[in-house]
């Protein structure tokens, strides 16, 4: 089985979010970047397949050189090789078409992405990618088993889950549950040493006309201070929720 794991490189959640260039660009200064958490779960499941069932794992990111440490971290955790598509990840459709070209060139039969990335939170890339490839697709995946070409996939639905059967080739949008948090791996010294020798290839972007563009970013208006209600005055809270906030 040839697995491709799509990695997006995102600001750590504790990062301060600011914008530059007249609020059109994310300000990366002082921001710590990490593997998108959903993608880290996805990668860990891929490693499980590699160890238990035999599979090769390639990780891919569409981005400029600054994403390479994130790809190296994936190699240190256990991916076999990495690809960087050399382009600004402008928008989801553009990114998905880049990934689609990588899948076609590499003949991958299982593509594991994350449900959504923590930066632009689009939740669009995995679906676009599946549609572009004509592969089967399951989103919000919390479990996956592969047996030959057959796949059993669990997805989260509102208020529960659904178990589906399908077959490879397949794209899934994974999330926590695909492995448990305790199964996530921290790269060890040996992994980090080995990662330096693993191949990281840089490929040029294919020509794609984007379907959207960012006009501007804005931060939510500063919120008014929290209204404190005395613990002995619960009626006041009910009154505020009913008459002011109108939520009960």
């Amino acid at each position: 089985m040839k697995i491709l794991v799509c990695i997006s490189h995102v600001p750590d959640t504790t990062s301060k979010i600011n914008f530059t260039e007249a609020d059109t660009k994310f300000d990366t200064s002082g921001v710590q970047f990490v593997i998108n958490p959903h993608d880290e779960y996805a990668l860990t499941r891929a490693i499980w397949f590699k160890e238990k069932q035999g599979a090769s794992i390639t990780v891919v990111t569409v981005g400029n050189q600054s994403v390479e440490p994130t790809l190296r971290k994936c190699l240190a955790i256990g991916a076999d090789d990495a690809i960087r598509v050399d382009a600004e990840p402008k928008e989801a459709f553009f990114v998905a078409e880049q990934l689609s070209a990588v899948v076609k060139a590499g003949g991958f039969d299982l593509v594991i992405a994350g449900r959504e990335s923590l930066d632009y939170n689009g939740g669009m890339v995995p679906g676009f990618l599946a549609a572009s490839l004509g592969y089967n697709f399951v989103n919000a995946c919390t479990g996956i088993e592969i047996d030959g070409a057959n796949a059993t996939v669990t997805r989260e639905i509102d208020g529960g889950n659904e178990v589906l059967t399908t077959n490879l080739p397949l794209v899934v949008g994974g999330q926590k549950g695909i492995v448990e948090e305790k199964d996530l791996r921290i790269p060890n010294m040996r992994g980090i040493m080995m990662a330096r020798k693993k191949p990281l290839s840089v490929v040029p972007a294919v020509d794609v006309t984007p379907s959207s563009k960012t006009v501007s970013f804005e931060k939510p208006p500063l919120r008014g201070a929290c209204k404190l209600v005395d613990a002995d005055n619960i009626d006041e809270l009910i009154n505020l929720l009913h008459n002011e906030a109108k939520v009960i």
Binding site: P11, T13, I17, F19, F26, E91, L118, D119, Y120, N121, P210, S211, S212, K213, T214, V215, S216, F217, E218, K219, P220
Partner: peptide
């Protein structure tokens, strides 16, 4: 649209 885990909004032009 929301972006950055609801810490910001983004105005996106759909060009299709």
């Amino acid at each position: 649209r929301t972006a950055f885990s609801n810490k910001a909004f983004c105005q996106t032009e759909l060009t299709t």
